[in-house]
């Protein structure tokens, strides 16, 4: 049998054209796509519904006071229409700031220890321990803070107040460091103690992101530093820390986002007050989550709507902090493949 073979068209002349793909999906595939797209839609709508619902419910309260007044008022008297979040939001931010200030050096040190210093056999165990720390429920940390830490840390509070009391942040009204009979109760239930407990929950979150980033330091640069005669700390200073800067900032901010929303530990430790309170060592303070957890039940109408407004403010702050954190991690040199 003879066959004629067409002369192949001159491949060099024709500009390469991508072949048009025509996808014809089977019925099973169409059903499958319908199903998973539907689930995506459901998840999307749940998540959007939470945000939208917060905003809609908050609108009533915001109409009563006006947004500006809501932001600057410190009192929370919803029956008289005089309420605002300046005091609670300040408390929230202070607790989170204390938490991050305490957790940051520890998590950075732990992350560097795990990636750079610890011997290989220890490394995986330490990684598991940090993950475990993140998994311990917040109520357990709260109990620990209330029953163990508070008694221990009052001495530290007093010491800071004695030596640094001239800084407004560390001033304690009604405390006399020179009097040996002074009661310790002015130092308990303070923003500082709540912040230290929240730091326990923040630290593993920060540490995981930082460790991830430090483990991606290019081996070439690391060994280059050693080959030039650097010590281990020299290598960390000139290679690991600059490489991981984005992850360090991003991880700390992710921790900050977690600290802002923490409820139970704060609820257990803090004693509430609705004054604008800068003095972190002094008993009393407030936070948005505390406010919601303690007031949700007793109010309806404007009161509930005001809680939603406070929740909306908290959500907005958390969202901004977390998005900025993700942006930092993604934009940094090390963030190309990290998941944070």
């Amino acid at each position: 049998m003879t066959t004629t073979i067409d002369v192949a068209p001159d491949v060099h002349d024709a500009t390469p054209q991508p072949r048009g793909l025509q996808v014809r999906r089977s019925r099973g595939d169409r059903a499958f796509f319908g199903g998973v797209s539907f689930s995506g839609l459901v998840v999307l709508s749940i998540m959007v519904a939470v945000g939208l619902f917060l905003a809609i419910q908050a609108a009533q309260a915001l109409r009563v006071t006006g947004i500006w007044s809501f932001l600057v008022t410190a009192e929370w008297e919803t029956d008289r229409g005089k309420f605002g979040i300046s005091a609670v939001l300040l408390g929230t931010v202070l607790i989170a700031a204390v938490a991050v200030a305490v957790a940051f050096p520890i998590s950075l040190g732990t992350a560097l220890f795990i990636t750079e210093v610890a011997p290989n056999w220890l490394r995986s165990a330490l990684i598991a321990l940090v993950d475990l720390m993140a998994a311990v429920p917040s109520v357990v940390y709260g109990l620990w803070g209330l029953f163990l830490l508070e008694g221990q840390i009052v001495g530290l509070s007093r010491w800071i107040n004695t030596w640094f009391g001239w800084i407004p942040l560390f001033k304690v009204a009604g405390a006399d460091p020179n009097s040996p009979l002074a009661s310790a109760t002015v130092y308990t239930a303070s923003i500082f103690i709540a912040g230290v407990v929240v730091a326990m929950m923040v630290m593993p979150i920060q540490c995981v992101v930082m460790r991830e980033v430090f483990s991606q330091v290019p081996v070439g640069e690391r060994e280059g530093a050693f080959a030039l005669g650097s010590t281990r700390w020299g290598m960390i200073r000139v290679v690991a820390l600059p490489f991981g800067r984005g992850g360090i900032i991003g991880g700390s901010m992710l921790g900050l986002g977690r600290a802002l929303g923490e409820t139970i530990a704060v609820l257990l430790i803090l004693s509430p007050s609705f004054n604008i309170n800068f003095h972190i060592l002094q008993a009393g303070g407030n936070s948005v989550s505390y406010l919601i957890a303690s007031r949700y039940n007793e109010t309806g109408g404007v009161g509930l709507s005001a809680l939603f407004a406070a929740g909306l403010a908290l959500f907005a702050v958390t969202l901004v902090v977390n998005s900025t954190a993700s942006w930092f991690v993604a934009r940094s040199r090390s963030g190309a493949s990290s998941e944070a």
Partner: peptide
């Protein structure tokens, strides 16, 4: 990033 208390409030 949603604080857990807000899920409860919702």
């Amino acid at each position: 990033a949603l604080p857990s208390i807000l899920a409860g409030l919702f």
